[in-house]
């Protein structure tokens, strides 16, 4: 019954995307939890300990590679699906679709690309320093793991604080649709628990974007 032309069906692609996406969403929780230690008001002491743990734990090291894989797979499939889906309607409607739908789902590629651009900027501030690609900023005094000091200089720059804040808004939009969408793609939709999933997803999107936004706001206004 098979047709050999398409090897990975769109359903499989979405399945993999959803799995990668869920992994990324878990990562965001860990990342946010650690980052919030920066704003407890001890000049980054507790945060420094958490960073030390992350840098030395071998399990975390392995997870870091999985994380990169997850990002790459998620992004590649996102772009491929977008291209395939775009080609499915060569002649557009003159009157745009009035149908109700989940609003953010239409802009996943757009919010995704914004997240991607943000990631590059973010990497220049932190990850590339650690990786030795970008020189260590002066405040860090030669310690490429002094992320606290790096955060201080980064976020006292109004432009960067603004870019971060805007990116978190778009991240929130991405997550608002993404959370419940991942469950649907994995085949988990049931009138018993789907309303709860949708509610938790909205909550998750708000907590993550507001949570991350606290950090630049803290350093810009209150540090």
């Amino acid at each position: 019954m098979g047709d050999k032309r398409i090897r990975i069906t769109t359903v499989s692609q979405k399945y993999i995307m959803a799995l990668a996406g869920i992994f990324l969403m878990l990562f965001l929780v860990v990342h946010l939890s650690i980052n919030l230690l920066m704003v407890v008001g001890d000049d980054g002491k507790l945060f420094g300990q958490a960073v030390q743990f992350m840098l030395t734990n071998p399990l975390i090291k392995i997870t870091e590679y999985v994380l990169f894989g997850g990002f790459i797979v998620h992004i590649l499939l996102g772009v491929i699906l977008w291209a395939v889906n775009n080609r499915a309607r060569p002649v557009k409607y003159s009157k745009s679709l009035k149908t109700e739908n989940s609003m953010f789902s239409k802009y996943m590629i757009h919010t995704g690309v914004i997240i991607l651009i943000f990631l590059f900027i973010h990497f220049f501030h932190f990850f590339f320093v650690k990786a030795g690609i970008v020189p260590i900023p002066e405040v860090a005094e030669g310690d490429k793991h002094d992320f606290f000091s790096m955060a201080v200089v980064t976020f006292q720059n109004p432009l960067y604080s603004f870019i971060y804040l805007v990116s978190f808004v778009f991240l929130g939009f991405h997550l608002k649709h993404a959370f419940q969408s991942a469950f649907q793609s994995l085949g988990l939709n049931h009138n018993k628990y789907t309303p709860a999933i949708k509610f938790i997803g909205t909550l998750y999107a708000i907590v993550i974007s507001v949570g991350f936004a606290i950090i630049p706001i803290y350093f810009y206004f209150f540090y």
Partner: peptide
């Protein structure tokens, strides 16, 4: 195209077929 879980289909289906069945299909 593939499904982006936009759910417009459910709203405009004259027979009210719910997207729950798409999840069933994925399963």
């Amino acid at each position: 195209g593939g499904c982006s879980n936009t759910y417009s289909c459910e709203h405009d289906c004259p027979k009210g077929i719910p997207v729950e069945f798409i999840a069933k299909m994925n399963r």
